[in-house]
Design a protein around this nucleic acid. Sequence first.
DNA 1: GTCTATACCATGATAGAC
DNA 2: GTCTATCATGGTATAGAC
Lengths: 201, 201
Amino acid sequence: MSKEPKLSFKQQQLIVRENAIIDATNALLAQKGYDLMTMDEVAAEVGIAKASLYKHFPSKEALAAAAMVRLLENTIAFVRDLDTQLPAIEQLKNVLKWALDIRIKGGLPTLPNENTSLRDALLNNNRYLNRLLDLNEHMAGLIEKARTEGVIRQELPVDVVLFTIYARSCDPTLDYLRSSGQYTDEQVIDFLISTCFRGLQ
Amino acid sequence: MSKEPKLSFKQQQLIVRENAIIDATNALLAQKGYDLMTMDEVAAEVGIAKASLYKHFPSKEALAAAAMVRLLENTIAFVRDLDTQLPAIEQLKNVLKWALDIRIKGGLPTLPNENTSLRDALLNNNRYLNRLLDLNEHMAGLIEKARTEGVIRQELPVDVVLFTIYARSCDPTLDYLRSSGQYTDEQVIDFLISTCFRGLQ
DNA sequence: GTCTATACCATGATAGAC
DNA sequence: GTCTATCATGGTATAGAC
């Protein structure tokens, strides 16, 4: 595409490096959360000096935001590629299953809740907000479809269902059940999906 | 009870002061979480100097652990006082409702998940662990009773039900729905209890 | 037991050489 | 753009006077 392959190659190198940085950030965000993640750790994980990190991302907040944006983009891509032949409720379950699989592999940072200072940064990040709105729209469409198919309770508003599914992707129950050592990862995921959609009763 | 009322009075004063400290700790833990809570804030909230705080509690971890122990004791007391005439499932719902009410009032720290450094401290705290085991036994009894009454799915192990209910007490869905401003607090709590026990379908 | 003042350390961010 | 070395801030914890 570019007229100067050399420049393009350099740019490619840059992208690869920055992807590696975001990989490390993602893992550390998932493992320790935003506040406990340190820039020293990220740099060490990537194998570069901390100062070099700051040449790529101007701040810790910007770095974390970039990681969250990439995560949202991957999620949107997954949702777009869902098999539309399936009942909407099965598509929703597949989204949750996909998220839980990623989480078990150590790559899913928990939702930015009100306790963390990352939240404010993300709420001021337009790239992040745009991706989030985009994902929300896709998910809301699926939820409404599932409702017209009669498999989601009518009295539950769409946003209640949406947040409930989002929250289940970072449910601490996953960690507790896994650390009990009594179940396989697949069983734990099935429990979470089942209790989310069918409840306890 | 004591032979020396004067000493007992001093001890009472101490208890009152320490209760005030734990009150402040509880609120800050709920608001910001363990890592973002600072000893300066706790001291300022109570109205004493930071050094005085350390005369009462030897460390930040010990202080947070004391707050969590008191919370567990209050929970156990509530569970003990439940109306045993009610169906077990209604008693379980009442426990969750009670916890969510406290959380809305700003007094319920989130569960210590794997991300926080508080977790290790609590796992080494025998007072905390004993209270937790005690509560777990009470709750497990209720869950088994509800199961024999046929209102909890047989295929769900007791610990899955237990953790699922615990996790719902710190579900971020509560914050998201409240901040949307579309529902009353009571509605939000009903949504959470309903989706927990009946699910989305 | 309360205070002021401070030691000590971790961490986000930067300077400046190469 | 990478590095080493450093700064500035804020936090836990403590010393020592009263």
